[in-house]
């Protein structure tokens, strides 16, 4: 896979979302990014048909975190055969909400002068990690204690070879609230806040000389925990 890391938040590798053969010659590929607190869908539209394409527009179905286009799909000139245009579509997270399976699924409709086409894609929920997600230390301790252990999920993150995990995670708005070293284990206590106000608390355990990290996640909405652990994996390995 591509290395989607610039300075800042993790961005996944670009993938083809809609194949030309299924969309009368329109190929759509793309990725997502969070830049300066704004979620963006970076889309490439390629015309693989023999006629010009125009009148592009986009709509999302309701989704788990209320992601919705915050503006029009700006394709300013008609797209000739074999041409590609790159568009950055800003997204808001205040649209209509409906729980999807998987939770991070997005159903998209794109229209042009020829027809309407549909595709699904998945986004890393780290797109939804906000910049003010560092929890107050006292609140962290109280919340950690308050969330029942039934709501705790544990994950192994294998083959990590990093010496600045904390900095790397902070680039994607995973904040270290406290760090302690106990018997050659670094215990990092971390907080994340999602755009919908859900807080996620985590303990990342890094043993000296052991490339396998242990991540424990506590959240009042435990269904998000596995998606958070996927983000740790992607961020730490990219």
């Amino acid at each position: 896979g591509g290395v989607g890391m610039t300075s800042g938040s993790y961005s996944p590798p670009r993938v083809v979302w809609l194949q030309a053969m299924k969309a009368k010659g329109l190929e759509i590929s793309g990725t997502f990014a969070r830049r300066g607190g704004v979620i963006q869908m970076d889309v490439s539209l390629t015309n693989k048909a023999m006629s010009v394409m125009s009148d592009f527009a986009v709509q999302f179905n309701k989704n788990s975190f209320g992601m919705a286009p915050a503006g029009p799909l700006q394709v300013l000139t008609p797209l000739g055969p074999n041409q590609t245009v790159e568009v950055s579509l800003p997204l808001s997270s205040t649209g209509p909400v409906m729980k999807m399976e998987p939770l991070n699924n997005l159903q998209v409709a794109v229209k042009n002068n020829i027809d309407v086409f549909y595709f699904s894609c998945q986004y890393p929920i780290s797109l939804l990690f906000v910049e003010d997600g560092k929890m107050d230390r006292q609140v962290f301790l109280a919340t950690w204690k308050d969330i029942p252990s039934d709501n705790e999920a544990q994950f192994q993150i294998k083959d990590c070879h990093l010496n600045a995990a904390s900095n790397k995670l902070q680039g994607s708005n995973i904040f270290t609230v406290a760090k302690r070293t106990v018997e050659a284990q670094d215990m990092l206590y971390q907080s994340i806040k999602l755009t919908n106000g859900i807080w996620v608390l985590a303990e990342l355990r890094i043993q000296t000389g052991n490339p396998n990290y242990t991540l424990s996640v506590k959240c009042r909405a435990p269904e998000v925990s596995q998606y958070v652990s996927q983000c740790y994996e992607l961020i730490l390995k990219n």
Binding site: R137, Q138, L141, W144, A178, R180, V182, E183, Q185, M187, Y189, E203, R205, S216
Partner: peptide, 20 residues
């Protein structure tokens, strides 16, 4: 004093989690 208390509480949490 509060800060000292919080430092101490995190140390206890880490100890307790590392050696349950």
């Amino acid at each position: 004093e509060l800060e000292d208390g919080l430092d101490e509480a995190f140390s206890r949490l880490a100890e307790c989690r590392a050696n349950p």
